[in-house]
Write a protein that binds this DNA or RNA. Structure first.
Lengths: 214, 214, 214, 214
DNA sequence: AATGAATGAGGGTTCATTCAT
DNA sequence: TATGAATGAACCCTCATTCAT
């Protein structure tokens, strides 16, 4: 059910976008978006710690004070960006998510979609990784972002435990062993230390599966 | 063999210390330590991003300019602190490391020692975690820190692959599946979201083992 | 005579209002008022120095740019507000002012009405006090505001000097000794340091009278 | 007694100054003083509300950040300046203050010295007047500044009430009627509206005396 | 070795005001 | 009339670092 809601939101967003293109292009696109994009690019180039409002402004080609028309402050900007990106990610991962799929298939599909998102959205991925551990991340934003991934908890891991397909351990551990290793390897991939190719992907999925399966 | 080198380094450090005592160098080793300690405490209290030279100076009860007697700049201070802490960690983990121990025992012992270090050195652990992803970490320091853990690569994982005890995959993957999950869970433990108790420890070790074993 | 002029001004204002109602001018007198009220409240809560156009706008529930429909700029807004408040004060003090009243009675009546105004219009009083010393107060507004109190100069103090009831000193001194002490004490009253009760009121009136009487 | 303490502090200050001249002129006078002076000048030229740290810095010919070497923040700077100026004032007023002087003489002497201070220290006077009503004035500073004037309360007004030379009213009222009128007239003097000459001075002293005397 | 003093550069944020709609 | 959007200028303050002593 939650999945459907997410998909609906996606539709609405698409409709909104069309609306914008037809009726609102008179101004200059959505300035909101250009601030988001500038921020993401900047974080990717220089790291979260080096991001400043004036740098964002320069990159987005607006005055620094203009940012404060759209966001309360730096924290607010980053939190809203975080939720925005997380939503994009959850939409892509849970697109066509089917509750009746066999568990191992569902597990593998989700993980592959997750990896696909990472590899095709380097900027988003690295931003999330940097921001998730930052003190700038508001608790509320974190909770809201976790909610986006509830299908995973309920329709995958909890269900898997009930069916004794997965080990009877803290669900957090199942999540961690499913997603953390690949995240870590993706970082090494983007650092140029290793290559996350098709073969590695299969290995990782196999290893995560071995870790969590009963 | 590498293990012995590490131990030797430790000896050298002790010799250095004696040297200091005998020759009464003015540059005070205590001051160096107190700057390190102040930095660690500060990072633990406020986060890496909030650390400034003047805050460190205040906490270490020295003048900010005094720090520049001991370190080239902020980056140098943090890198040296990082290596210092990493060395402490490797010393504790590889203490009594025996090359002839059966692999599964060696695996479990190392992981338990690692977890023990984390739980009894919260400050060091969180500092490493924060700094390892920071752009302030120099490549040289990173490489040097990796060298400290070579026994793991050679005497544990490579060996295990040769003996077909572990999966025939990129050694990095073995390392990641061995250490990353517990690191991630320890973070949740320190955040107060979960509790890393004896039972959880056993579960994690079991899961990591399942992930990497052939 | 001057008194009558003041009353006439009042009438004019009423006529203006009727005019508005009949002809339904778009420029809404209510909005003007709500901007005034918001400003007064804000100054009372946070002090004159903390007042900004955007804060006024938020409190008055209008857009900041709307303020510029009614006032030239911030200075103009504050000056007009100042005159508005001063007028309210003079109207209350000179209400029923009678030229033929014996001087000591007129003196005491005026002073009591003044104190009554202060105590029942804390916001107005504190605004006047803050603004009167501010560099934002235009000279023209100041002169205009002084004119409102001419009955005091002519029908009270000058007359009293002529009749040798008051000391033969600079009229400004008579005004100062009449009004400044009570103003200062009222401030302490509102600060919570003293209480301006009936007894204190009598004492102050007595002291002011002793100061100025011949 | 309190008076003596104040005088002693004065001596110490003088000694310190000599010391500075002989041994410390190597730098550039007391930078602290130059920041104070710049602030006072600025407030006198543009008003308290217009004072900014950067303007002070420019006028004092230092970098804005240098001010933060000497003061915690803007509030701290202004509060310390306030106490500094108030101390100078109390030193001048209570210089040679003699407890055994007849009350009316003591009253008149104090008031004349006060007026003299105002007229010869326009900058200090106007700063005090502006700052005393500012929300930037810390309660602690206010209390500390009031303590400097305790001789007035104890050796003049309270004593005068005991001897039934003054009216049996709130001591604050005696203080207000003694000092407020002349302060107000001095403001008009500096504004160019009136002239506070010898004759006016005598009139004011007479009027204040009439107000408070039993 | 140790430090107080000094600073330019930059941080985040608010300001009064303008302009197109 | 009313306003959302936009901005340059200014705000206070902290930063890492240097230098004279």
């Amino acid at each position: 059910m939650i999945v459907n809601i997410v998909v609906l939101q996606n539709h609405l967003t698409l409709i909104e976008r069309s609306f914008n293109i037809w009726h609102m292009r008179h101004k200059d696109e959505n300035k909101n978006e250009s601030i988001f994009n500038a921020t993401i690019e900047l974080i990717n180039e220089q790291g979260l710690a080096e991001v400043s409002m004036s740098k964002i402004a320069k990159k987005a080609k607006v005055s620094a004070s203009t940012i404060y028309v759209y966001f309360e402050n730096k924290e607010d900007l980053l939190n809203k960006l975080f939720l925005n990106v997380k939503k994009k990610m959850s939409l892509e991962i849970f697109n066509n998510f089917d509750d009746s799929t066999p568990l191992q298939i569902a597990f593998e599909t989700s993980l592959r979609k997750f990896i696909h998102f990472i590899l095709t959205n380097k900027d988003y991925f690295l931003f999330i990784e940097q921001f998730q551990n930052s003190p700038l991340l508001h608790k509320i934003s974190l909770e809201e972002s976790i909610e986006l991934f509830e299908p995973l908890y309920n329709s995958l891991f909890e269900k898997g435990k009930q069916q004794h397909v997965f080990k009877q351990v803290d669900t957090n551990l199942l999540v961690i062993f499913t997603f953390r290793p690949v995240i870590e390897f993706a970082k090494e991939h983007f650092n140029g230390n290793s290559e996350l190719n098709q073969e590695k992907m299969n290995e990782i999925i196999r290893m995560s599966w071995d870790a969590i399966k009963a």
